[in-house]
Each structure stands twice: as structure tokens, then as C-alpha cells.
Write a protein that binds this DNA or RNA. Sequence first.
DNA 1: TGTACATCAGTGAACGCGCGTTCACTGATGTAC
DNA 2: TGTACATCAGTGAACGCGCGTTCACTGATGTAC
Lengths: 202, 202
Amino acid sequence: MSTKEKILDIAEDMFLTKGYDNVSVRDITHAAGANVASVNYHFNCKRDLYREVFKRKLGRLSQEKIQKIREDIGTETTPTLEHVVRSIVSGFLNDFLASKEAEKLLSIITNEMSENATAQDILMEETIFPMHKVLRENIRRAHPALTDQKVTLCISSIFGQIFHFVRARSVISQTTGHEYDQEFINTLIDHITEFTIRGIRG
Amino acid sequence: MSTKEKILDIAEDMFLTKGYDNVSVRDITHAAGANVASVNYHFNCKRDLYREVFKRKLGRLSQEKIQKIREDIGTETTPTLEHVVRSIVSGFLNDFLASKEAEKLLSIITNEMSENATAQDILMEETIFPMHKVLRENIRRAHPALTDQKVTLCISSIFGQIFHFVRARSVISQTTGHEYDQEFINTLIDHITEFTIRGIRG
DNA sequence: TGTACATCAGTGAACGCGCGTTCACTGATGTAC
DNA sequence: TGTACATCAGTGAACGCGCGTTCACTGATGTAC
């Protein structure tokens, strides 16, 4: 494996578990067994390396995730709204709560959603647009009465909840008095699913 | 005004518009017309200054906000669920979208909600617990059938949506094709309110 | 009332460190004639 | 087949900067006898 590939792999691991500012060029190159200058040689600068790492990771992850959603919902018969929403909610909630790394990745993604973000173009292209597309299709299959704008707003309401229940987990643990064990996670999935279905059905 | 007070005021302004890492001790002391060493002299270290600033700001803001909510909903007759939810949603959405500073403040608050945060204890004490208390009371007045746990989960669903529609505003602008002008903000308020009421009513 | 000492707000200069980046370089491989 | 040159991956050492913090200090105010 070339130095360039080694740096890319190690940078992915480090950036996505510790965050951009908490990883130095020296950390990466040292772990890759290469010289400090090699990041600038191969990737121009730290920021560009980050963007390349982010793009590669997000591209892989989104494709995987979209395929899982497609398989889970199926393409044959018309799915129920309950099935579609539960599939989305339980899929994302379980994925993001599966490990510390997944939680950290979510916090990086949500940071890239805010203005002044440094890789929002990549996030939109690799994840948000393709993800919205597949979700919009499936929600409309299950509930064709909704307008395009309404579907989009409902998708944002779903992700608003999912992101919050993951990101603010320690706050929510304190307000509810529950640890995030699998039983409570299932309670959360039920809650978000039911809340959302009713919200959509109107 | 003493140097200490001047530093506190200026640090509040700078930390809450630029974020902890983007403000240096030199920035603060220079703007306050004081010596670099004065932060350490009066507040021990940068982090402790930040925590004091954060506590003071959050305390003031929460009290104000809670009073506004109490006035808006009223204490006399039983309010409708629609009235309670709309009051919460429009209040927070308009407040957080009122200025760049308010948006930045929200992003600081949501960061403090995640694990590894440095001032989560202050956030819980000054804001989350008091805010949950007043919201729980009013939602239960309007809809007494809900269990305690259910009310708490619904509050999180509401804030999950509010936070997301503010934080991810540039992403949502791109997926919906709408700028955040007052007309679209009103559309968002209507959407979140209706989505939430149906979600709660079940 | 005067004196000696303690306390306190605030300062100026420097310390030590970690950071991203740059620069001149080496050594291997490819290519043209 | 041999030679001269270009290209490329990678290196070692240093540069310059900004950072939070420390330390010895000054000068004013308060306090005890």
C-alpha cells in the first residue's frame, strides 16, 4: 500500500473519531509511518485531505445505507406508511447508536450541516440529495396524497428527531431517567415512529 | 466598570458569536483594554471564564424565556394543545432565527448537549431542567392523558425538530428550494406545530 | 495620628509548546535519442 | 545498449506563528496596633 493510501485510511479513522481540530498532521503521518511533509505533498493541505477523506467515507456509507433501505422496504407491493417510517427510524437510530464512532460521525455530519461548514457541498452531493431522493420516493409510495414540499418537511421532521435523540443522548438520559440500553432504544424507535406516522397522516 | 466585569461582558459577546476555540485570551483582553494575564488572574483559566460566561448568559436567557412562555400561554383557563405547541414552536423558531448571533448560540447549546461537552452541567441546571419543567406543566394542562415519560419524549421530539430546522437551515434551503424569509418561517412554524399536535394527540 | 504590614487589582515580559507549512534534498524509475 | 535528462515519491529539518499560562513586579487601598 502506498504512503498516500495509508494516509487516507488512517486520516479517515482519526478525523472521524476525533474530529478535524483534534487530529494534527503529525498524528496522522506518525501513525502512517511517514514524514510530516507527506500530507502536504500528496494532498496539498490538511483541509484538502479532510475533504477527500470525508467524500470517500460519505460516498461509501450513503450507497450502503440506501441499498439497505431499498432492500428493507422492498420494491414490489405498496408498503404501508408504518413500514416505511419504522424502517427509516429504526435503521438510522440503531446505526448511529451502535458505537462511539458512529455517534462521533453523526456529530461531524450535523456540524457540516450548519452554515460556515467546510465540506457542506460534499455532504449535499454524497448524502443529503441521494438520501432525500430515496426517502421521498418511498414515502410517496406509501402515502401519495402528500405534496412534494410536505414530504420534504416531514423528512426533516424525522431527521430532526433522530439526530436529536442520538446527539443529545446524555441530556435525554437525564430528563427521562433511562440509560440507552436496547430496551430504551426500542422505546425511542416506537415513540418516534408513532409520533411521525400521526404527524404525516394528519 | 472593573476589568473583571469588562472581561466578562466582552468574553460573552465573543464566545457566543465565534465559539470557544475561535476566540483567544489575547482577543478578549485586548478588546477589554487589559493585560493578557488578567483572564488567568480573575478567572483562573480560559475554560473557567467560559463556564462563568456561559452560566450567566444561560441563566438570564432561560428566565426571560420561561417568563415569556408563561405569559404567552397564560395561567387562567385550560389552554388548548394547539395554543401551547404553537406558542413553543413559534417562540423558539423566531428567537433562534432572529439573528446570526442567536443561530450561533443555538449551535453552542446543541454542542454542549453532546457527550464530552465541557459545560453540560451548567446547561442542565440553568436551562434544560427549568425549561422541561414549565413545558411539561403546560402540555399536561392541555392534554392530561399523557404519561410523564410520554410528555418528556414529546418535548424532545419538538426540540429535535426546532433545533434541526434552525441548525440545518442552509441544507433545508437547498432541499426545499426556499430561503428563510418570514413567509417560509411561518410555513415551518405551521408544519412543526401541526406535525407535533397530531404526534401528541395520537 | 502615624506606622508597618497585608491584601488586592493589574501589568509586562517571557516561557514552552504544538501547529501547518515550506524548502532543499535524495534516490528510484521512466523516457528519448 | 548506453547515456542524459525528466519525473516522481518521499524525506529531514527548520520556519514562523499563535496559543494559554506563569512569574516577578508595581502601586493603591485596607487594617491592626
